[in-house]
Design a protein around this nucleic acid. Structure first.
Lengths: 170, 170
DNA sequence: ATATTACGTCAGCCTTGTTGACACTCCAAG
DNA sequence: CTTGGAGTGTCAACAAGGCTGACGTAATAT
């Protein structure tokens, strides 16, 4: 199975395209595409002395305004120390606001300030432009397949996070 | 255009699906999927005190045996100092061999040793397993679309590297 | 003969991840 | 009311893996 040959039998249900070579090409496509995917925001962030970690925080705070630190931790999959370092600078720079919870006062609810929203817009505009161009080039059916495969590649918990964001956001 | 509304006009050529919200979901799909994509190899590498950088080097040396350092540098998009650190440990550990070029003796041609090939096999098996499962779940047409969009997302140079690897390798 | 290319390496810096430990606030349960 | 635990913030120390700058060496190209 891992010998690089195409499957020989006739009865493989849809398996004809799953040669090792094609799977390898899929890996490489992911690698190169992800580079492109992050390139544009990275350029913007560089000038601001921020990194990809800041972008991720801003993105998901914008996506789920009022989210708690713990929730964000789960989505991002990093330690609270790591997130806190990023969050601290964003708060200090006036891009993110942290409000004590009304219901449970231990929790902090995170929001973007106007400045934060402006940066988010700038970053996501850049990223969306690339995605939009790619979508347009590939066509609608390709986009559906793209999303389908990506979703199938996720870990189950990530898939749940993704689905949850989709419900509330779109 | 960046206001989150769906395009209103009738004549948008294939633009109906390109709402900001759907583009945003595409970004998130990329983010979560890439995490899944790297998760399995990462687990294997952790035990060996290697990281993702080692994986990438091993992958592309296996893919293009005899490649030069400079060529690998271009594919990976890192500095030679960064690559050298990784390469040095791989050579010291007997996973990679560096041979002086016959034609141009300044060049070093990189190959995997048997041990290197074994590790490459282990890593790519893990990654392929996930990709294969995702492909199977999503179906053949989805896979075609997946590849099409990913390729369209790449920077032009990366697209060239990707195409070159595809020619020689598959 | 000289300039350039390909490579290796040292030193130092940054971001972003990690663990471990500790403090504080607050909710919930006994 | 006390106590346990959850949610958060923070300090310290460390590692991986990027980066720049500088220098050296061998071999090719001009």
């Amino acid at each position: 199975m891992a010998d690089g040959r195409a499957p020989t039998g006739i009865g493989g249900e849809n398996l004809l395209f799953l040669t090792d070579e094609q799977l390898r090409q899929g890996s490489e496509a992911m690698f190169f595409a992800y580079r492109g995917f992050t390139a544009d925001p990275d350029r913007i962030l560089m000038d601001l002395a921020y990194g990809r970690a800041h972008h991720r925080a801003i993105h998901f705070i914008n996506r789920a305004p009022g989210t708690t630190v713990n929730n964000l931790l789960n989505i991002l999959g990093v330690t609270k120390q790591s997130l806190n370092r990023v969050l601290r600078t964003l708060i200090a720079d006036g891009l993110v606001e942290s409000k004590v919870g009304r219901n449970d006062k231990r929790e902090r609810h995170l929001h973007l300030t106007d400045a934060g929203k402006a940066l988010e817009r700038q970053l996501s505009d850049a990223q969306r432009a690339r995605l939009r161009a790619a979508y347009r080039e590939a066509g609608p059916e390709a986009v559906a397949g793209f999303r389908k495969v990506l979703e199938a590649m996720m870990d189950p918990e990530m898939r749940a996070s993704y689905a949850r964001l989709r419900e509330t956001g779109g």
